Amino acid sequence: MKKLLFLIALLTLIPNLASARRVGGLFGKSERIQKITDVDIKGANGEDLYLAHKTTSLFIFMGVYMTDDGYVLGVKGSINTYYPLSDEQLKNFQASGALPTPLPAYKIEFTEWLWGFSLWILLAVIVVIWFFPKNKEALFAQGCKYYFGKNTPVNYPKAMRYFEKSAKKEYGPAVFNLGVMNLSGQGTEKDVDGAIELLKKASTLGYVDANVTLGNLYYNGNEVTKDMIKAEAWYKKACDQGHANACKMVNHIQQAS
């Protein structure tokens, strides 16, 4: 998870580094002038000008906002130097023929908006990653990580919390694992009756191992009263799902009766 967040932050930050460099760091305001077309207009000091549009971005480490400031007259040979254009000036230049009527349309690139609001985008991504509910398979996998001790110490209470979250989404394997943990007293007080109810629920969700485990419970009679009829019934359900050993147990019980 930390690696993913770092990658997202890096991918979002890289384009901002180039933009922020214009303001001498990662904090401050950055103005960007984008040329639209050449025009026959001179500046106050005799400079050759061109019609452009201007955007303004604010950086606080990353982009906080970006605004479309409209048309300006850029100065040729100078980076981001411009003369602002009021509505009255635009009309006067158009009336004199120095600027076309209507003015050429322009479109700000999507990446400009993306960079300009990158800080908020990154924060939104982080919030989604941390707080948006994970899917049932991912929650189950996280539970298995703590249950089996994959690259981390075994932690039954943590495993149970993840299995419970996955089980709420009606995921059979998670419900089954909760049943096993209740049956064994792993991460919780041993609860045979509660375990049987969980195993039955996992069975209704189509999880074959739940049927086999219930069959074993009634066949062995260690945690519940031995009952060959119930054992055969649960083995039969597993057998119908293609569980070979369950089929053997059905045959064994039938031959012994």
Rank of each mutant, 00 (worst) to 15 (best):
S30P: 01
Q94K: 08
N45F: 11
E112A: 10
T37E: 11
N80W: 07
I36G: 02
K150C: 03
N151V: 07
K35Y: 02
G194Q: 07
A18P: 06
T55S: 14
V224I: 13
A18C: 02
V208Y: 00
V212D: 13
T204C: 12
P153L: 05
L5D: 06
A246G: 14
E189H: 09
E88N: 04
L178T: 03
K200D: 11
K248L: 13
K145E: 11
G242H: 07
D40E: 13
L114F: 15
Q186F: 10
L11F: 14
I126R: 01
T111N: 15
L4T: 10
Y83D: 02
G221S: 02
G97N: 01
Q255C: 04
K42N: 10
K136A: 12
I196E: 01
A9G: 14
V175L: 05
K165Y: 08
Y156M: 15
K236E: 12
K237S: 06
S86W: 02
P100R: 09
D87G: 09
L123M: 15
N182T: 08
F132S: 10
Y106I: 05
F176N: 15
L123W: 00
T101G: 04
F27H: 05
K190H: 03
S30D: 11
A167W: 08
V39I: 13
N251L: 10
G185M: 05
Q142L: 09
G143K: 08
L17P: 03
I79V: 12
M249E: 15
L99V: 07
K237N: 10
G63Y: 00
D48I: 11
L217C: 05
G149E: 10
A167N: 10
M160D: 11
G28Y: 00
P84W: 02
F110V: 11
L217I: 02
S30I: 09
Y82W: 08
T152K: 06
T213R: 13
R32N: 12
W234A: 08
A256S: 11
N220R: 12
L5F: 01
I60M: 14
